[in-house]
Nucleic acid binder design. Structure first.
Lengths: 249, 249
DNA sequence: TTGGGCTATCTTGCATACAAGCAAGGACAG
DNA sequence: CTGTCCTTGCTTGTATGCAAGATAGCCCAA
């Protein structure tokens, strides 16, 4: 797993490096991303680092705290639910829209499941995290719609951040089995069933999260003092829903 | 429909202004967006204009031709199909995921349909374009998932650009009726049917496009010379699918 | 008239400089 | 010892300057 050389800089290396780091669970949520440090690291000026950050910000992967710094997002419990909700909708819709599985598709899925199994046997948790996310991207790739692939990639990145925050222990086996069931239905050509299984699977994963504790480092203190649990974990801007709609009359 | 005053500049006015302009069909695909002009228009320096452009670029709403300028995207026929495909998946998935319609929800939908009808009667095509797009955002708002809302908003913007490029004439009545049918199924609580209708509706709209001619200004000349139609309309990078996946050893 | 090449101008790409603001640590008064 | 204030350093925010490249128009030659 060699690190990519930072000498050649094909335009958006910084962005990709960070996303890749998150996808591989090497960058934790809340990590501070200093413009100067990154600029030094990549041998460019702050300008280009900033551009990358702006892009990542519109993808909801980092956020800026004014004059304090850039940070990898720490999704709130509410946001986490929304991300899972969006994934349920999109992935179920995607599966339902599929009609048949090509031979390469079948092979790709089987190959992926084998990789998952190998990583599980090897106990390589980082790699497993990454593969678990990739499974869903693989399906999108099968459908061959780049628009959806890109959307799911970003949602997967956010999902991994969520896992790192809220997943107390890793039910790898359970997830793997879920994937296997979905794959089976797909091989049977029963995509409606695959869609249902996909929803169930995401439900399972979501309920496997501990959405009350993690993002609040004071939770232990709070509970030992018998204070009520914080209403909304992240009280800054919250979910950003810009009103760029119609603006009718 | 007053224009927003450009005096107060709350951070991302430029971005919103452009998206809003597209949503209202006031900005055509292919429009050149000069950094200097926008900077002057909004009374800021190029830096901030560039930031806005970068953000819009990650949302696939503008693109940059190196050292030539920024342009509002002109989706290729292929891209157009992908966008419609993504919308079918997401909107059908969304409707299927819905369980019941609140009273406010019902009212919102009815209100929207009334607006569509009014605009149709008034023959206000711009407003109609905008409303037609908004219908689908309204549904997402009903589901109350900000993540999906944001995704659909961007897809809607791209859809409107596609319409402006490929829609020879505007089947407003047909679209409106499609919306009405979907709404009816929703009011009946039959969301599976609403999902199916939604897919049909998007299919109708898509097949109503003329995906062979428009983006190529030479098409008329080409056909009068009996040359074969261009294989792939946009032969530049094509659909950008960055390889930000696993990169596992 | 036509074709080739040059230049003038305008575009973005990128780095840098300066301004504004936050945070932490120390000095100091109570 | 404790609380307050100030200073210092480091962060991002924004503008500007310069360089590289592309385009269009012009001149000139054939």
């Amino acid at each position: 797993m060699q690190d990519s050389p930072t000498t050649i800089t094909p335009r958006d290396t910084i962005e990709d490096a960070i996303v890749s780091g998150i996808l591989n669970a090497r960058i934790r949520p809340g990590t501070r991303l200093s413009e100067n440090q990154l600029a030094g690291l990549f041998g460019v000026s702050r300008t280009r680092v900033r551009e990358a950050m702006m892009r990542l910000e519109t993808r909801c992967i980092v956020h800026v705290s004014p004059r304090r710094g850039w940070f990898v997002v720490e999704p709130s419990a509410e946001e986490a639910m929304m991300v899972y909700g969006a994934r349920r909708v999109i992935e179920a819709g995607l599966l339902r829209s599929m009609r048949a599985l090509s031979d390469e598709g079948r092979a790709a899925i089987r190959g992926h499941l084998a990789e998952e199994k190998a990583a599980m046997d090897a106990g390589d948790r980082q790699r497993l995290t990454c593969l678990m996310g990739d499974f869903h991207i693989r399906i999108a790739e099968l459908a061959g719609n780049p628009v959806l692939i890109e959307i799911l990639r970003d949602l997967t990145a956010r999902t991994i951040l969520i896992s790192m925050l809220y997943q107390s222990d890793f039910h790898a086996l359970q997830s793997h089995l879920g994937h296997c069931r979905i794959a089976e239905a797909m091989e049977d050509g029963d995509f409606a069933k695959a869609a249902e299984l996909s929803i169930e699977h995401l439900d399972e994963v979501e309920t496997g999260l501990d959405l009350t504790q993690r993002p609040d480092p004071l939770s232990e203190l709070r509970s030992s003092l018998s204070l009520p649990p914080r209403s909304v974990p992240s009280s800054d801007g919250g979910t950003k829903t810009k009103s760029t709609t119609t603006k009718g009359e």
